[in-house]
C-alpha cells in the first residue's frame, strides 16, 4: 500500500507530505532550506550533528529534521532566533572539539563545515579550544585520514556500509573519545576490507578524509555523486 499523504505546516505554510518522509525531506521537497551537516541525501540519516534542529508545536524539545518523521497536523518552525543560537553553538562546539585550522587545510574553500559556519554567522568561537593531540593516518596508499579535521558525522561509515557494502569504517569509543576506525582499529593501509573505492573521501564534508598528495585548498569533493549513485541503486532495486 502506498504511503498516505499528510498535511503539515512548515513555517506556517500548509504543505502536503508523504507519511514516510522526514521533516527535512518534506521541507526540501517544498523548497524550504534547513541547514544540515551530517546528512547526505542517499544515505540513512542518523542525526549526529544536530545542526538541522527545528521547533515543533506541542513539544519543548528541539527535533532533528533529518530523522524526525512527519505526522498529520504537525507544525514546524525551521528558523527562529533560538534555533539560530543553538545551531551556531553547535558549530562552535564542533570547531573547538578538534583542530580545525582552515588556513592550512586541504579542504579550505571547499569544506561543508566551513561554509556552514559562514552561513550561520559563526564569526568567532566563544568556547575554549580543546587542542587534542590526534593522529593522522597516512598509511593508505591513496588516501589520508586526519582525525584533527573529523567531526564524527559518520558519512564515511554509512557510505561504505550502504553503498560500497564493505563496511570498513566504524565509530570507536564514546563521547569525546569517539574515533573513526577502519576494520578492527587497524591502520587504514592495513584494513583488508577496504576496496580503495574512495566513496568515503567524496562523502566526507571536511578535510578529514582526503586524497593523498593534495596540497592546501586542493581537495575538492563531489558528494552529489554519492547521492546520484544511491538514487540509481534505489531505482534499480
Amino acid at each position: 500500500m502506498p504511503p498516505k499523504n499528510v498535511s503539515i505546516r512548515i513555517d506556517g505554510e500548509l504543505i502536503s507530505a508523504r507519511e514516510d518522509q522526514t521533516i527535512l525531506e518534506a521541507a526540501t521537497a517544498s523548497g524550504k532550506h534547513i541547514p544540515t551537516l551530517c546528512h547526505l541525501a542517499g544515505l540513512t540519516p542518523v542525526g549526529a550533528c544536530r545542526v538541522c534542529i527545528v521547533e515543533a508545536q506541542g513539544t519543548d524539545r528541539l527535533l532533528p529534521a533529518c530523522t524526525t518523521p512527519v505526522h498529520e497536523g504537525m507544525s514546524v518552525t525551521t528558523s527562529s532566533a533560538k534555533l539560530a543560537r543553538y545551531r551556531r553553538m553547535t558549530v562552535e562546539l564542533l570547531l573547538v572539539e578538534r583542530n580545525h585550522v582552515c588556513s592550512v587545510c586541504v579542504s579550505n574553500g571547499h569544506c561543508e563545515l566551513q561554509s556552514l559556519a559562514t552561513e550561520l554567522g559563526v564569526t568567532n568561537v566563544r568556547f575554549a579550544f580543546n587542542y587534542p593531540k590526534l593522529d593522522v593516518d597516512v598509511s593508505h596508499p591513496r588516501y589520508v585520514l586526519d582525525h584533527n579535521r573529523c567531526i564524527l558525522c559518520s558519512r564515511c561509515v554509512r557510505v561504505c556500509a550502504e553503498l560500497e557494502h564493505a563496511h570498513v569504517w566504524e565509530v570507536r569509543s564514546r563521547g569525546i573519545h569517539s574515533r573513526i576506525v577502519s576494520d578492527l582499529n587497524a591502520k587504514w593501509g592495513e584494513a583488508q576490507s577496504c576496496t580503495n573505492c574512495g566513496k568515503c573521501v567524496q562523502a566526507c564534508p571536511t578535510g578529514a578524509l582526503a586524497e593523498k598528495g593534495r596540497a592546501v585548498e586542493e581537495m575538492t569533493k563531489s558528494s552529489e555523486k554519492i547521492t546520484s549513485l544511491a538514487r540509481w541503486r534505489g531505482a534499480e532495486a
Binding site: S103, V104, D135, V136, V138, V144, G213, E217
Partner: peptide
Amino acid sequence: EGRPFYEMPGITAR
C-alpha cells in the same frame, strides 16, 4: 611532526 609532507609548504608559509 606526523603531518603528511606535502602539507608542509602550506603550513610553513604561515
